[in-house]
Amino acid sequence: MIHIRFSDNNYGGEIDLSGTPGDLRSIRQSIIKLLQAQDVQVCIPANEVKPAPYDSCLNSLVIRKSDCSVKVMVAGSSLKIEGTPEKLKVFADWFNFGDSTESGYHNHFDYYEGNEWVDPASVSLIISCKYRGTK
C-alpha cells in the first residue's frame, strides 16, 4: 500500500509518495493499463500514516488523462496527476523501481524552466522507496 504525505508552503508545497518497489511498480502498471483503456482516470487508495515531517496525509492517488503537460496537484484529500497519454507513458517510468532498490532511495519530479513535459504549476513530487515497517 502506498503512502502520500503533503506539506503546503510558500513554494507551492511538496508531496512524498512512497511505497515498496512492488507498490511503486503497481502504480506504473496502473498508468499503463489506463493508457490502454477507454477510461479517463484511475484511482489508487493510499494508506494513512503519521505525516511527520509533512503536515498531512492524502488518501488516494488519481491519475487522469488530459490534454496538458504532466501536472501534479492536490485536490481535496487526493494527489491528482494528469497529462496527455504520451506524457503519462513517460511519467510511468518514474515508478519503475527494482526489488533491490534500497529503502530511502527517491526521485524528484519537478518543473524547471523550459521543461515542456511538466506543467509549471505542478507541486513538487518525491517518489520514495520504503520497505514495510519504515514509516
Score class of each variant (00 low, 15 high):
11 Y>K: 06
86 E>Q: 10
49 V>W: 02
62 V>H: 05
69 S>L: 02
8 D>F: 06
134 T>N: 15
48 E>R: 15
110 D>A: 13
80 K>D: 08
70 V>S: 05
26 S>L: 07
64 R>L: 10
86 E>T: 05
35 L>D: 02
87 K>T: 01
130 K>W: 09
51 P>D: 06
88 L>S: 00
126 I>P: 03
104 G>R: 14
12 G>C: 07
62 V>W: 06
101 T>S: 13
68 C>Y: 00
19 G>E: 04
74 V>W: 05
114 G>M: 09
31 I>R: 06
20 T>C: 07
18 S>A: 15
106 H>L: 15
59 N>E: 12
32 I>K: 09
42 V>N: 08
94 W>T: 11
106 H>I: 00
52 A>S: 14
128 S>G: 09
113 E>Q: 13
63 I>V: 15
9 N>M: 01
89 K>H: 08
46 A>I: 04
119 D>N: 12
125 L>G: 02
95 F>Q: 00
75 A>K: 11
38 Q>T: 12
113 E>R: 08
78 S>T: 07
30 S>L: 01
50 K>V: 12
83 G>A: 04
57 C>D: 01
133 G>Y: 00
38 Q>P: 03
110 D>I: 14
16 D>V: 11
7 S>W: 00
122 S>C: 06
135 K>N: 15
95 F>D: 00
11 Y>F: 09
7 S>K: 11
78 S>A: 15
129 C>R: 11
